[in-house]
Design a protein around this nucleic acid. Structure first.
Length: 280
DNA sequence: CTTGTTGGGTACAAGCAAAC
DNA sequence: GTTTGCTTGTACCCAACAAG
């Protein structure tokens, strides 16, 4: 895409259009509902009105090849007609690449259902954070998606390693900042794989690199679909004597918001007070 | 003024799942 | 198996706005 193409395109795009494209760049895949929650949450008379608006905008962007819908429906999570999953279209990818001054083309091919489901689960966590911010429960200081949240480090035996969290976030409530690594678990991985990943977190924590930069090590949160899966992961972690249990927390998607709201992402020694009982 | 584009609101159909 | 409830997507209406 030449710069003139990009600018002629930009004239026809609102700041909200650009914001939608940027979201798709960050999260790779988003459902229509995700985009509504992110960009059509305010200023609409009803949920139905917002839903209509977001579909109109997305279909308009689709005709310009800025966004594209996945052929495969990712369903089963909610009742209702199966939703559309969106990703950047070829033109949208070129436009954002030009805007960000990048040379490397990112390919947006049809992902596998398993990859798509996981990607959407990660996006759901991040959007949940922003919604808590809208409700004035917390303040979102920072959200890093893949691959910018990846951390390289040198392990105990001099080996070069990558820590690849699904999401890194810093939130604030009151005077306290909470730092988080999130793993969106869909109960597709065997517990030993989870334990192995937990040990990567431990090796990264042992380098002290993150603590040196931020003064604390983030809480590592596995967000799982149900209590049975939570029990399975907790059992696998506690069964391994090499695991430091204080680094890790396992919550269901249902309890995710409560955990974020009450905090706990601070390192253990920075935890200011005992959790307070709050009623709603 | 006419026309086309964009986006908001509402009604309704389609589709799924839990409840009956 | 049927009903009920919920959610999503589409069709149609309207208003605001810009370009010609």
């Amino acid at each position: 895409m030449s710069p003139t193409d990009a600018t002629s395109l930009l004239i026809h795009l609102s700041t909200r259009d650009i914001a939608i494209l940027e979201s798709l760049r960050s999260y790779r895949l988003l459902t229509t509902a995700h985009i509504r929650r992110l960009h059509f949450a305010q200023g609409h008379a009803s949920l139905a009105a917002a839903s209509g608006a977001v579909m109109r905008v997305l279909t308009r962007l689709e005709t310009r090849n800025l966004v594209a819908r996945l052929a495969r429906r990712i369903g089963g999570v909610r009742a209702g007609s199966s939703g559309v999953t969106w990703q950047l279209g070829a033109t949208g990818e070129r436009l954002l690449r030009t805007m960000h001054g990048e040379k490397q083309r990112r390919r947006y091919v049809e992902p596998s259902p398993a990859f798509a489901a996981h990607t959407l689960a990660v996006a759901d966590l991040a959007i949940g954070l922003y919604e808590l911010q809208d409700q004035a429960v917390i303040e979102v200081v920072r959200v890093d998606t893949e691959p910018s949240c990846w951390q390289s480090f040198v392990g105990p035996h001099g080996t070069f390693e990558w820590l690849k969290p699904d999401l890194y976030a810093v939130t604030a409530s009151g005077d306290y900042e909470d730092h988080w690594f999130f793993e969106a678990d869909l109960a597709t991985e065997h517990p030993p794989v989870v334990v192995r990943k937990a040990k990567v977190y431990q090796r990264y924590a042992a380098t002290g690199a993150h603590q040196g930069r931020h003064g604390l090590f983030p809480a590592v949160i596995w967000v799982v679909p149900d209590t049975a899966r939570a029990a399975a992961i907790e059992a696998a972690l506690s069964a391994d004597t090499a695991i430091q249990p204080e680094l890790f927390r396992v919550v269901t998607t249902e309890d995710f918001r409560q955990l974020i709201a009450t905090g706990g992402g601070t390192s253990p020694d920075a935890e200011p007070t005992a959790p307070q009982q709050t009623t709603h």
